[in-house]
């Protein structure tokens, strides 16, 4: 009897091995796979949920992994849509791009840091190690803790483009992954300076997290200064497809760019783009 139980258990175990990979496929529902930028992903997931509600039988699967992965997966056909949180480069015209929103990157400091405004050259000097103490720019007598993002992150790329540096010039004390980690790190350290998406920073500020968003070259980073283009560190969030989109893929992209998604985009502190 005992052996019998053992046999059944082993058979179940074996079946699990064999059958699991097959579970991912659904026979009678269409699936759109969206992968890429972790900046766009939370928004895309919300839009996907609304889209699924409006289109029963369609499943939109949103996965993160960075803009580079979004491009690679789209090129390899692993995903129908890639999310790329920057403008497409000249060597990237093999894919079709659709801008869905604009995001600004802003510098953040701890709430107890008295410095209210920074200039581009100050930010540049802080990140390259030319300025090492807050007192050099009128702050406290404390060394600056420079928080930067890991190689390959698109927020890093946008920031580097703004300060005009190469990633090898950056002299960081702390290297972080996503926006949330950046905010937690800066909020926990009164001497820190970091940069994250304006959307993420504003949302953290609204929750009462101990950070401050200093103005840059006299412009206060916010949703409205991104909309009018006066905030200097901004980037366009794109969806990309390998070929002209058709069917459900096309419907999803159209939905993303329609009025219906504007409220969701605003809720994520991004700025919506008018369809061309």
């Amino acid at each position: 009897m005992q052996l019998k139980t053992c046999e059944i258990l082993s058979a179940v175990a074996l079946l699990t091995f064999v059958a699991l990979p097959g579970c991912a496929r659904h026979a009678n529902s269409e699936t759109v796979i969206v992968t890429g930028s972790s900046t766009i992903a939370p928004l895309a997931a919300d839009v996907a949920r609304e889209f699924e509600r409006a289109h029963p039988g369609v499943r939109v699967d949103v996965q993160t992994g960075g803009s580079s992965r979004g491009l690679t997966d789209t090129r390899r056909g692993l995903a129908q849509i890639g999310m790329v949180s920057r403008a497409l480069g000249p060597h990237e015209h093999d894919v079709v791009g659709f801008s869905v929103a604009i995001d600004g990157v802003c510098v953040i400091t701890h709430r107890d840091n008295p410095i209210n405004s920074l200039s581009k050259s100050q930010v540049q000097k802080i990140y390259t190690g030319a300025i090492e103490h807050w007192s050099e720019i009128g702050g406290a007598h404390q060394p600056i803790t420079v928080v930067s993002k890991a190689a390959g992150r698109s927020t890093l790329a946008v920031f580097l483009q703004y300060v005009g540096c190469d990633s090898t010039d950056i002299d960081a004390d702390v290297v972080i992954g996503d926006n949330e980690q950046g905010i937690k790190t800066v909020a926990g350290n009164p001497t820190a300076i970091g940069y994250v998406s304006v959307g993420a920073a504003e949302s953290a500020l609204a929750r009462g997290v101990a950070i401050r968003i200093p103005s840059l070259d006299g412009v206060q980073p916010s949703t409205s200064t991104i909309r009018d283009g006066s905030h200097p560190i901004r980037r366009v969030l794109n969806l990309v497809t390998l070929t002209r989109p058709e069917g459900v893929t096309r419907q999803f992209i159209d939905y993303f760019r329609s009025e219906a998604a504007h409220e969701l985009i605003a809720r994520h502190y991004f700025v919506s783009v008018d369809p061309p």
Binding site: G65, A150, G152, V174, V175
Partner: peptide, 28 residues
């Protein structure tokens, strides 16, 4: 802290191999 520097004191930021893979793999 994940800064890529050989630590000279306990208070220095370090990056481990596993952290490096987790930080950069998604974008590499």
């Amino acid at each position: 802290g994940n800064a890529i520097k050989t630590p000279t004191s306990l208070f220095d930021s370090v990056r481990t191999l596993t952290a490096n893979i987790a930080l950069e793999m998604a974008y590499a």
